[in-house]
Design a protein around this nucleic acid. Structure first.
Lengths: 149, 149
DNA sequence: TATTGTTATACTCTATAACTATA
DNA sequence: TATAGTTATAGAGTATAACAATA
């Protein structure tokens, strides 16, 4: 989180700067820092934000599926839900159809917090992207999605 | 490292996929996985690879400066150099001009390993980028650099 | 048998702060 | 007094494996 992105003066980076992976990493760090500023106060990380949005759009989802979306082991998803539940943002409800799984839901407070965060994150994303033109942003998104497939 | 990138079927991602930060993260994870495959065998991580390249291009650099380049605290740079030194890839030499600082250098083995890794990473980067056209890659690099500033 | 959630454990990365030796 | 390196410590994040309950 304290990670800087700026090039260090007088240092030869060789062909490092020609690597897509390196450029991606640096842009991602810059984006993360902007995200962190945007969500200052709330102790929200990108995975937590993602979980909130996914719960909002997919009420009743299971922890396993959430873990799949986040790309983490189920145990990690569980700890994340513990965290959200301890803050009254999410809740586990028994599922009548499957006694093993929980259905995950946002609480009313969780809804409010998520809506607020979504606004803030959307604003930060716009500000972050303001370094490039609107059609460049669209093109960038398209290329990034292609690489992420 | 086990993190998946694929979209999960049947899940509503809401406006998450419109966020640059989210797209950057996913692309970066995909890139990291490709990097990991490319460097399989060598227990090399992106920061370690960066350190090797920086040492190769900037012999005699200090740990503090290396930490600055990597965006980590000096203690982290130190542990990284410990790791490289233990494997005979880098060495610390006393600096005549400053008794506090070390000068960092690649060993002969470090040179060989770094050259090999650079070849492999360059190849992986090309393969990774093959999902997009050459001029698209150039444009992508340009936009990413702009965002990372 | 397979899957969900849970628990315990461990590992990696990294930050912080205090310390020393030099400058 | 400021800086480079070191050391110790702690925290976050996440993986793995074993287990109970349920399918």
């Amino acid at each position: 989180m304290n990670r800087r992105v700026a090039r260090v003066a007088g240092i030869d980076y060789l062909d490092l700067e020609e690597h897509l992976g390196y450029a991606l990493r640096r842009a991602q760090v810059a984006s993360f820092q902007a995200f962190h500023r945007a969500t200052a106060g709330a102790r929200i990380t990108p995975p937590r934000f993602t979980a909130l949005v996914i719960l909002q759009a997919n009420p009743g989802i299971s922890q396993s599926t959430l873990g799949e979306v986040l790309g983490t082991a189920r145990s990690g998803a569980m700890l994340l839900i513990d965290w959200l539940e301890a803050r009254g943002l999410a809740e586990r409800r028994h599922r009548p159809d499957d006694g093993r799984a929980w259905g995950l839901y946002l609480t009313l407070k969780g809804q409010r917090v998520t809506n607020d965060l979504r606004r803030r994150v959307r604003a930060y994303d716009r500000r972050f992207a303001s370094r490039i033109a609107v059609d460049e942003r669209r093109e960038l998104l398209r290329l990034l999605r292609r690489l992420a497939t």
